[in-house]
Amino acid sequence: MVLIGFVNRLLIFALLLVITFYLPRLLPGDPLEVMVASEYTRGLNAGEIQQLRIHMGFEGSWLDQLAAYGFGILHGDLGYSFRHAAPVADIIIQPLGWTLFLILLALPIFLVTGVACGIEAGRQPHGGIDRFLTGAMTLLASLPPFVMAIGLLLVFAILLPILPASGAQPLFPAQGMVAHALQILRHALLPALALAMHEIVRFFFVARSEAISLSTRPFLLNARARGIYGVRERVDYYGRNIFPAIASRLSDAFSGLISGALFVEIVFSYPGIGLVLYKAIGERDYIVIQSTVLLLSVFILGFNWIIDTLVLLHSRRG
């Protein structure tokens, strides 16, 4: 089972490799010309263009280029972007770090809030708390990620300027490690919150429906009869039993988080991978587009494979 999952994902990876390679090349226009054309560059003559083409690896048929690209990937070489004059790995590694940082910051927010609210609502289905929470979550679910991001930006960074509106750190970071880390956290707070909001809803509804079905189970009725209430009831009895369902939902959440990060990073000009991808698409930087999409899908596929495997192992253990 575990192995099949892995092979499946390997297959997807190969498919994506080909798609990400060919799709950008179907775009109209010659990447070399896009790269060299601006209002200021002089026109090159044919000989010069050919010289550049050879230099920049745009020589040869698409198939040759694909082979070279695939071969490089197998050796861990993501290629070289001539637009940025840098190896692609250098271009995307730091933004990837920022994006993962945002996601990791958002993770506890949406997990704790979503699951806690879900349990609270599911403890007494159709009660007052449930109706209020479900209503609120439905409202929250109706806000697309970019609306949420713009809203937070507007309220907390523009109307009440208490948090930074853009970037990942101040122009001139503080000297001390701790102070700097705090500044980075401050900058990440709004984007992470915007990112978390949408996922809160997802986990709320999962936790709620699980909690509703748990609420009628004998062991819980039993526990309540023994006077177990409060935190212990919610964590030990509900939380523990809801865990597998939450974990399995986490595997598709990751893909949602990545696409959410794209919008959030654009709104907050956060220097993450979404912004890199967005700019690369505008600039037709094929090699960066390919590698970013590939890397992101490797992350998504890898992450949900790991989660699936863990859930599988967990359920086998009983």
Partner: peptide, 19 residues
């Protein structure tokens, strides 16, 4: 379909729409 489902569709949509 399994394969299609694990492709992050937003990335594909983005690629194609820019084109």
């Amino acid at each position: 379909i399994d394969i299609l489902q694990s492709i992050p569709s937003i990335l594909l949509i983005l690629l194609v729409s820019v084109w």
